[in-house]
Amino acid sequence: MPGGGPEMDDYMETLKDEEDALWENVECNRHMLSRYINPAKLTPYLRQCKVIDEQDEDEVLNAPMLPSKINRAGRLLDILHTKGQRGYVVFLESLEFYYPELYKLVTGKEPTRRFSTIVVEEGHEGLTHFLMNEVIKLQQQMKAKDLQRCELLARLRQLEDEKKQMTLTRVELLTFQERYYKMKEERDSYNDELVKVKDDNYNLAMRYAQLSEEKNMAVMRSRDLQLEIDQLKHRLNKMEEECKLERNQSLKLKNDIENRPKKEQVLELERENEMLKTKNQELQSIIQAGKRSLPDSDKAILDILEHDRKEALEDRQELVNRIYNLQEEARQAEELRDKYLEEKEDLELKCSTLGKDCEMYKHRMNTVMLQLEEVERERDQAFHSRDEAQTQYSQCLIEKDKYRKQIRELEEKNDEMRIEMVRREACIVNLESKLRRLSKDSNNLDQSLPRNLPVTIISQDFGDASPRTNGQEADDSSTSEESPEDSKYFLPYHPPQRRMNLKGIQLQRAKS
């Protein structure tokens, strides 16, 4: 015994090295194993092979420090690593049964499904019991997946119906949107047309105001020219009257000059006056001389005659003075006559000038009245044309509004008919989907599995289990394997941990 101590140590070291070499393959693929292994699927088989106990299973599945599946799978690998070579062998058998691809990844061999460990530990009855539990578990999982698949199909059909409904609603909204954009385009076109009409109206108003201003300026210029013409006519008439007055005065002077006595007659009258003065002096001298030589009687007679002569001279002087006064009065009367005649001529000139001015103003008033009548006639014609244009424009607008209203009513009726057609199509689609759903539900009910399987069917299934373990590994792997896509769409199922009653199965096998 003492001599065998070193050999035992060498043997233990060799086993430990082999164990480390075995687990080295697992550690190399630890990331892939932790990512894809579900500990809840492996722990029943590991407990059946007595590699882990209930406490280890509870620690792996329910520990609060292991929230994710990767953490739980890593903890399970750590626990199996502590179990040595047996933990490695049982772990590979569980991978061979549940995850053939991972088994091939770790060992590089094809899975054979021999279950040597569980046969050694529990015997064939334990293997049968384990396989029966796994089959029931798989059936329950398949039923749950079928239910989930039916629910998802129903949800899918519902979503398809909602999608069709949303599509129809979208078509309806597109119809309304198209109608909205069309009405918006019509409104924009009408606004552009309105702005264009306003611009045209403004341009016409500006043109009309400009023409009116030009016409008023032309009328004012015409009036100024007419006033200048009238003033020139007035000056012409005044000059004609002055010329006529000057002509009359010149004719009067000419007549006075023609009626003036001649120079010879004046000289002859002056000679006669001198001769008479000479004779008068001679007679006076004779009379003076006679007075001195005459007697007293003759002197008395001469005195009487002288007195008579003096009286006659006085009378004559009075007559001469009277004649002079009369001549002066006649001259003054002639001057007054000439003055009055001049005033008369001036008044006649003024009267004729005023008459011509009156005629001029009368003509001017007639011209202004004619212009006013023409302006009123043009204004009435413009008003009439404007009223006709406004009436025609309003009539066109009324007809346009009428046609637009008819078009809008027809478009609304068309839209309502399209919407009604879309709604009826939606109703038809809904009815078809309901009919299809009812038909599929009836087919699913016919094809669904019963909840409680008979014992004979279970025994028959387990009677055929042994050949399947040898020759149909691919079928078992397809039913027991969970793909990543299934984990996305289906909830994980945790079967209840219970042991099955095998009395009925044993009785059935005894009868057979």
Results as ranks from 00 to 15, higher is better:
80 L>T: 03
9 D>A: 13
30 R>I: 02
75 R>H: 13
125 E>F: 12
83 K>C: 08
71 N>L: 08
88 Y>L: 05
29 N>E: 00
64 P>R: 05
53 D>S: 09
92 L>P: 08
38 N>I: 01
40 A>W: 03
79 I>V: 07
138 L>S: 14
106 V>R: 00
52 I>L: 12
73 A>F: 01
29 N>P: 02
37 I>Q: 03
10 D>G: 13
123 G>D: 15
73 A>N: 12
71 N>E: 04
25 N>K: 14
121 E>A: 07
112 T>A: 13
19 E>H: 10
142 M>R: 09
52 I>S: 08
101 E>K: 00
36 Y>H: 13
61 L>C: 14
5 G>Q: 14
80 L>K: 03
24 E>T: 01
119 V>K: 15
46 L>I: 08
7 E>S: 12
30 R>A: 07
28 C>V: 01
104 K>V: 00
108 G>R: 03
97 F>L: 00
139 Q>T: 11
42 L>K: 02
143 K>C: 06
15 L>K: 12
52 I>D: 08
135 V>K: 13
37 I>M: 03
63 A>N: 14
69 K>Q: 05
52 I>H: 06
113 R>L: 03
92 L>R: 06
39 P>H: 02
86 R>K: 10
30 R>V: 00
13 E>K: 11
32 M>F: 03
91 F>R: 00
70 I>E: 04
32 M>C: 04
97 F>Q: 01
45 Y>S: 08
30 R>G: 00
91 F>I: 01
111 P>N: 10
32 M>H: 10
80 L>Y: 04
43 T>H: 09
31 H>F: 04
113 R>G: 15
130 F>P: 01
56 D>N: 11
140 Q>N: 11
35 R>C: 03
124 H>A: 14
49 C>M: 13
29 N>C: 01
51 V>Y: 07
52 I>W: 08
54 E>P: 08
113 R>E: 15
40 A>F: 07
77 L>F: 06
95 L>S: 00
34 S>C: 13
9 D>T: 11
29 N>T: 02
42 L>A: 03
51 V>Q: 08
81 H>M: 05
39 P>I: 01
94 S>Y: 09
102 L>P: 07
80 L>C: 06
28 C>E: 11
60 V>M: 09
22 L>W: 07
24 E>W: 03
21 A>G: 07
80 L>P: 01
112 T>F: 09
128 T>N: 04
126 G>A: 10
5 G>T: 09
89 V>K: 05
124 H>T: 13
141 Q>C: 03
31 H>Y: 03
41 K>D: 05
68 S>F: 04
39 P>Y: 08
120 V>E: 07
82 T>P: 04
18 E>F: 13
134 E>T: 15
106 V>A: 07
75 R>Q: 06
54 E>S: 10
45 Y>E: 10
24 E>K: 06
79 I>C: 03
94 S>I: 12
81 H>I: 10
123 G>W: 15
78 D>I: 03
110 E>G: 05
37 I>S: 01
69 K>S: 04
69 K>N: 05
71 N>A: 14
105 L>R: 01
46 L>C: 09
132 M>T: 01
51 V>F: 04
119 V>E: 15
75 R>I: 01
50 K>C: 08
117 T>P: 15
9 D>N: 09
10 D>R: 07
63 A>G: 09
36 Y>F: 09
16 K>F: 07
111 P>K: 09
57 E>T: 04
12 M>A: 10
37 I>A: 02
81 H>P: 03
106 V>E: 00
23 W>M: 02
123 G>I: 15
50 K>E: 10
82 T>L: 09
33 L>F: 05
41 K>H: 15
87 G>R: 01
40 A>L: 04
39 P>K: 01
139 Q>Y: 10
14 T>V: 11
56 D>C: 02
26 V>I: 15
16 K>D: 10
117 T>L: 05
15 L>E: 08
82 T>R: 07
69 K>E: 02
8 M>C: 09
15 L>I: 14
127 L>A: 06
78 D>S: 02
4 G>P: 08
66 L>S: 01
87 G>Y: 00
140 Q>S: 12
37 I>N: 03
21 A>Y: 00
70 I>K: 03
30 R>P: 04
53 D>T: 10
118 I>L: 04
66 L>F: 08
27 E>N: 11
10 D>L: 07
123 G>T: 15
48 Q>R: 08
79 I>R: 02
25 N>W: 01
20 D>Q: 11
22 L>G: 05
105 L>T: 09
140 Q>Y: 15
124 H>V: 13
84 G>A: 05
62 N>T: 14
51 V>M: 09
133 N>S: 13
10 D>A: 11
140 Q>F: 05
8 M>Q: 10
64 P>K: 03
88 Y>Q: 12
125 E>H: 15
82 T>Y: 12
144 A>E: 08
41 K>R: 13
113 R>A: 04
134 E>W: 15
89 V>D: 14
39 P>A: 04
36 Y>I: 12
36 Y>V: 14
88 Y>N: 09
90 V>F: 15
121 E>T: 07
126 G>F: 14
49 C>T: 12
31 H>D: 08
70 I>P: 04
12 M>L: 09
17 D>K: 10
79 I>T: 02
126 G>V: 09
16 K>E: 10
141 Q>T: 13
121 E>W: 12
103 Y>D: 00
81 H>S: 10
31 H>W: 11
112 T>G: 14
68 S>Q: 05
112 T>M: 13
29 N>L: 00
85 Q>I: 01
18 E>S: 12
75 R>G: 02
32 M>W: 01
87 G>A: 03
111 P>E: 15
31 H>R: 05
7 E>N: 07
83 K>V: 06
59 E>H: 11
138 L>G: 12
20 D>W: 11
84 G>T: 04
118 I>N: 13
55 Q>F: 13
20 D>M: 06
81 H>W: 04
71 N>P: 03
18 E>W: 12
115 F>S: 13
142 M>S: 11
68 S>P: 03
81 H>F: 05
125 E>Y: 14
31 H>E: 05
137 K>P: 08
124 H>W: 12
84 G>E: 04
145 K>T: 09
16 K>I: 14
85 Q>G: 10
126 G>S: 13
136 I>T: 09
48 Q>C: 10
117 T>S: 15
55 Q>G: 09
33 L>M: 06
121 E>Q: 08
68 S>C: 08
44 P>R: 02
62 N>Y: 15
56 D>F: 06
34 S>I: 04
22 L>V: 07
63 A>R: 06
124 H>E: 13
133 N>V: 07
125 E>D: 14
47 R>E: 07
28 C>L: 03
52 I>K: 06
114 R>P: 14
130 F>W: 14
47 R>D: 04
126 G>N: 15
29 N>V: 05
10 D>I: 05
109 K>P: 02
141 Q>F: 10
84 G>W: 03
